[in-house]
């Protein structure tokens, strides 16, 4: 446990608990069909997003991730209300109900999504880092992706570009061990993803993704390197408790396996360290838990009470100026003027 203090411990715990409680609530809401489509929960992986975000400078750095993005969005400081509203498809959502669970964005906090195509965010992130270098902003970009994405050409092409142009970028493979229903070992030529860095002459590092303090340390080292023009690849070994998405029956793994990883739960691990350091305060922990529950409940209340987007908004947010459309615009006329689900116009 290097360079950490008690207040940092409490902050990291709080950030992880907020994500955990938000995701539990999102899962419930999915069960109630308030949220549709694909909904990929982050339970179990909280230490990765929180460890990094505690080091990221949200004023000048950028973060991009894949579709399992609720945790990263919360860690970046986005409003839980607007995230939950987006999951509900409401116009008050971060993306005005256009993006949903997989596409959360907040450029003001340096959070550039929320990407639904496996690995496609990696070259985009390297381009963001290119702009940072070109503009001499001093910022760096952190891009998260999974153990499935690392085999995409996009990863390999992007890492090569990052190296040859000395771009300030950290590539973080969150190895949660299951690419949908495929165990990572079945489809990987190497049993340590950090080795892939050596093919491109960059530094690779493996970190225990269940240990938020270890992640924070690795993130600090990686961002220091990145800011000096040395891209880094991090493999954070972690585990997701929930299915790939909410519709995943999870027949590919055993209950025992999940339970085994719950013993290494990132929140529990941090609490154990805090207790060992004599920094534990049960009341304070309960207060954090209660506040996180309230945050999640408030987010649901906000989402519930928010209006549906008006039908004409389907024609918005496509072009910068005057919108134009091929063919006829029948969308508004073909739809009922009131949404039958809500009774609202």
């Amino acid at each position: 446990m290097s360079e950490w203090n008690i207040e940092l411990g409490w902050k990291l715990r709080n950030d992880m608990v907020r994500i955990r409680r938000f995701e539990e609530k999102a899962g419930q809401m999915y069960g109630l069909r308030k949220i549709g489509g694909f909904c990929h929960l982050y339970n179990g992986q909280e230490a990765v997003a929180v460890g990094f975000s505690s080091t990221v400078d949200h004023e000048r750095d950028y973060v991009l991730t894949g579709y399992r993005d609720h945790g990263h969005a919360l860690a970046a400081g986005m409003e839980p209300d607007a995230i939950m509203a987006e999951l509900f498809g409401k116009v008050t959502g971060v993306s005005r109900g256009k993006g949903g669970s997989m596409h959360l964005f907040d450029p003001a906090r340096g959070f550039l999504g929320g990407n639904g195509i496996v690995g496609a965010q990696i070259p985009v992130a390297v381009g963001v880092a290119f702009a940072q270098k070109h503009r001499k902003s001093g910022g760096a970009t952190v891009v998260f992706f999974g153990d499935g994405a690392i085999h995409q050409g996009a990863f390999h092409e992007a890492l090569n570009l990052a190296k040859i142009w000395s771009l300030p970028v950290v590539l973080v493979c969150e190895n949660n061990q299951w690419g949908m229903g495929t165990n990572w070992k079945r489809v990987s030529a190497v049993d340590d993803f950090s080795l892939m860095a050596s093919a491109y002459g960059v530094r690779g590092e493996q970190v225990d993704g269940m240990d938020v303090l270890a992640v924070k340390d690795a993130a600090t080292r990686a961002l220091d390197d990145a800011r000096a023009g040395r891209p880094v690849l991090i493999e954070a070994r972690t585990y997701r408790y929930k299915g790939h998405s909410m519709s995943d029956p999870q027949k590919y793994r055993t209950r025992d396996e999940v339970d085994e990883y719950r013993k290494q739960d990132p929140i529990y691990l941090l609490e154990e360290k805090m207790k060992a350091a004599g920094a534990w305060d049960e009341e304070r922990a309960l207060a954090q838990d209660d506040a996180a529950d309230t945050m999640a409940a408030d987010a649901v209340a906000f989402a519930e009470s928010s209006p549906e987007p008006a039908l004409h908004t389907m024609y918005e947010d496509i072009y910068s100026q005057d919108p134009f459309f091929m063919g006829r615009r029948d969308g508004i006329h073909a739809m009922p003027s009131r949404n039958p689900a809500t009774g609202r116009a």
Binding site: Y62, P107, L112, A120, I122, P123, V124, A125, V126, G127, V128, A129, F130, A131, Q132, H134, R135, G153, A154, E157, A158, N160, L161
Partner: peptide, 14 residues
């Protein structure tokens, strides 16, 4: 794929 995506990223970053 790599440099086209890199261009897109540079575009969203100004």
């Amino acid at each position: 794929l790599g440099f086209t995506g890199l261009g897109v990223g540079a575009a969203i970053a100004g």
